[in-house]
Nucleic acid binder design. Structure first.
Ligand code: ZN
Ligand code: ZN
Ligand code: ZN
Ligand code: ZN
Lengths: 176, 176
DNA sequence: GTCTCGCTGTTATTGTATAACATCACTTTG
DNA sequence: CAAAGTGATGTTATACAATAACAGCGAGAC
């Protein structure tokens, strides 16, 4: 690996997911947040919903609904597409997962609970997806849109390329 | 290029498509540019390819591949999905159309020929799509990505909301 | 108890996209 | 001209993504 771990924890937040981190926390913290949220909001955290959250949290990459469904099926939690889509809809609606339009796939949210406008950095080599925060109304584009009278309601910002690790590995090699 | 806006007061070129304009030019200029480009690049501008370009240019909205295919079928230009997808791939690859990931649909490019990084403003009410230009490497997000060592290769920026016309029409009414 | 509401299970269908292969047309070259 | 090569086309079939529709079950309300 020898990832140089530049800026240890310093400026992080914008590219969390590409950096080395204690990944066990990603899952446990995420699930804990989901449990708390559902308790507070009187929402039913069913086995399927929790399991899908765990599945997504376990990987910093976007997973297709059918890929998730395959896992659910193996575990006897469901076998038909609506099972997966309903759980994903629940998670997305409540801010614990996002859909990556570019990939027609879903990824766990990095800052669960709070409503926000995510942006994604997608590595085409190792398929990891990092979530960053955007301020769509700021920036040239947001200003131009506002000036033109366009009223932004939702944004899709997805950047595809090579993550630091895959860049270091060299353009030709890539990594699985 | 530098198409005269028949409507004054909008100095923005970033939201072209929402503004009033001589729409006949959108089609004729676009096709002309495509003809020139293909001649210069020694590419075959086949009937299907040109017709698909015309279809897209005729509307400032994203069209699904199967919607385009329906038109081609009526005109005897093709009846199977690959016909439409191949033409669309050709146009996208050469910069005369873009895919709007959010809609799984395609839209004609506003500045054909030149390689650029488009952003889209999508009106959820009237379904018009305007193309704006972005500088992904600038802005907070681009800077954050660069700082994190992420190498951007392609960007998807799609803003959904209400266009000026539909905002003026009032939130409740909308317009077809 | 029983009523209600939301989650589940399932069937079926629609929509989006591509693989694979044979054929055809044009162009290059001998 | 003929042969070979290249790339577009036509077609079949299939994979992948998403939703509609409806029956049944279960926990909480009253
Ligand atoms: Zn992690
Ligand atoms: Zn990578
Ligand atoms: Zn126009
Ligand atoms: Zn509109």
């Amino acid at each position: 690996m020898s990832t140089d771990m530049s800026q240890p924890g310093s400026d992080q937040g914008s590219s969390k997911g590409f950096e080395q981190h204690d990944h066990a926390h990603c899952v446990s913290d995420g699930v804990a947040a989901l449990v708390d949220y559902c308790a507070a909001e009187r929402l039913k955290l069913t086995p399927v919903r929790q399991r899908v959250a765990e599945i997504l949290l376990a990987e910093h990459r976007a997973m297709g609904a059918y890929e998730i469904l395959d896992i659910l099926r193996e575990e006897g939690l469901g076998s038909q597409p609506p099972v997966a889509y309903r759980a994903l809809d629940f998670l997305v609606k409540n801010g614990f997962a996002h859909k990556v339009e570019r990939l027609n796939a879903f990824v766990a949210c990095s800052h669960p609970g709070a409503t926000h406008t995510p942006a994604f950095l997608i590595c085409r080599s190792c398929n990891k997806v990092a979530e960053a925060d955007t301020s769509p109304t700021k920036g040239d584009l947001g200003r131009a849109a506002a000036a033109a009278g366009f009223q932004i309601e939702q944004t899709v910002v997805e950047l595809e390329g090579l993550c630091p690790t895959c860049v270091d590995a060299g353009p030709a090699s890539g990594q699985a």
